[in-house]
Write a protein that binds this DNA or RNA. Sequence first.
DNA 1: TAGGATATGGGACTTTGGTCTAATAGGGGA
DNA 2: TCCCCTATTAGACCAAAGTCCCATATCCTA
Lengths: 205, 205
Amino acid sequence: MTETEPIVFIVDDDDSVRKSLTRLITSVGLKVKTFSSANDFLKCDPYDGPACLVLDIRMPGLSGLDLQAELTKAQRTVSIVFISGHGNIPMSVQALKAGAVDFLEKPFDEQALLDAVHLAILKNKSLRQAQTELNQIQKRIESLTPREREVFSLVVTGMLNKQIAFEMGISEKTIKVHRARVMQKMQAESLAALARMAEKADVYP
Amino acid sequence: MTETEPIVFIVDDDDSVRKSLTRLITSVGLKVKTFSSANDFLKCDPYDGPACLVLDIRMPGLSGLDLQAELTKAQRTVSIVFISGHGNIPMSVQALKAGAVDFLEKPFDEQALLDAVHLAILKNKSLRQAQTELNQIQKRIESLTPREREVFSLVVTGMLNKQIAFEMGISEKTIKVHRARVMQKMQAESLAALARMAEKADVYP
DNA sequence: TAGGATATGGGACTTTGGTCTAATAGGGGA
DNA sequence: TCCCCTATTAGACCAAAGTCCCATATCCTA
């Protein structure tokens, strides 16, 4: 597994802002890709790696907040640092409540922006990691047959095969069969590992 | 276990604001307690139940943000809804980054405030619940002897007693003894339950 | 209609975990 | 000095889980 390089996306309709941001961010060795509108960014291929988005609030067409909403809807995980020339409090509140990493006013302190970008990349990395892990677990759960899923959810509560058999009204022998398949399909080498997966996938109420 | 009643604390130096807020919030059946300064609130006994704090930003003495910082430092879990007459973007950003539930500008929409308060109470409830659960688990972990803790962390990775014994260079028999004590002290009725506790307490890297 | 996936079970066997009793040994506090 | 906690181990035994190999009965699809 190669460590993918982080990319900083910049979406701002102002050409000079894009240029100065690019200069600033590339100066610390980060890769940059710029877009002059939210729609351009939405049209581009979702980047499969740690990504940060430096996003202007006020733009013709889709606004920064609109873009944020679209990305959330499309389940594209980018960590956003907002920059605004004429923002207001409700905007900043909405942005942060929707998960933005920071919200800076123009003219911003260069170091503050770089800090925010680095933090966003870090957060994005761990977010992506947690997400892919969860996806894998859920995909495995989907590969279970209905009966296996039933056994799975009872097993991870700590019930004995005997008890599960009674609960489901079938033989303990059959539970063993299902259970073995669950362990195999979930790729769990131990009950402890299975329980951890269940915990992450929120199988418990 | 009796369900403790939620309380809405109001901290604002303006008498008339306190009064109108109290009227509004009690009108939906919530209990209210008011304070005219941040220090007064800090001096009062930490309430052990779901709590929401409606907090003014600008006040003589400690500001709302100062109070938020103090509460965080003191590990007092209250969910905060900020209200501000003369706030600005950096303030709102700081407040939300520090975990505030909402940040409303005066004059605020009454329904918006009530919604925020209700949301804050909900969040506070689940926060408190997760916290007390975590505390219990950590207290139990602390009650383990060093050797037991070692066995604990190896057990929850799914290792067999035999493997743990080899890893620790002692007899499998001893592992069984430690393991039994771990289950007892952690109040886990099954390996699955133990693994879930370990997951919550972040025993894994 | 043949084959695959699913669900169900039995028999026989091994490994693993849990429990009970009992014992030894060192460190530290009353 | 004596007792408690901690750590260590043994033997005996039972319960639980996992693993073979096997068989039957659906249901759905190619």
